[in-house]
């Protein structure tokens, strides 16, 4: 059995608030431990794991299909995963992932 630990930065920075920090924004960083992970681990598997984390699931997964929301961005070591192999991009121990819950408009 192996344990894969991945640092996840949940996109936007919070905790800058001077007053009344908003606790509902959730964690800024998260270590996700996945027991029984094989040597080859993909972003697609990571996305399926998010459904076990209520706050992350709400932020990143489509309610019915549990697929990654179309407005989310994932960076692996600073590069957009769509420039790599998309959801099939492989993750290795020590990689740095950034998950960005995309926001519309502006």
């Amino acid at each position: 059995m192996s344990i894969l630990e991945i640092d996840i930065s949940v996109g936007p920075v919070f905790g800058l608030e001077k007053r009344s920090p908003d606790r509902t924004e959730g964690p800024r960083h998260l270590k996700l431990s996945i027991p029984n992970a094989s040597q080859v681990y993909t972003v697609r598997k990571l996305v399926s794991e998010l459904s076990n984390h209520e706050h992350l699931a709400e932020m990143f997964l489509d309610g019915k299909a549990r697929a990654l929301k179309g407005n989310a961005i994932i960076l692996l070591n600073g590069t957009h995963i769509d420039l790599l192999s998309g959801l099939d991009t492989q993750i290795r121990v020590g990689d740095r992932l950034v998950l960005i819950p995309f926001i519309d408009g502006g």
Partner: peptide, 10 residues
């Protein structure tokens, strides 16, 4: 401007 931090990283 809630999108700003995401825009920085994205």
């Amino acid at each position: 401007n809630g999108v700003f931090p995401a825009a920085v990283k994205g």
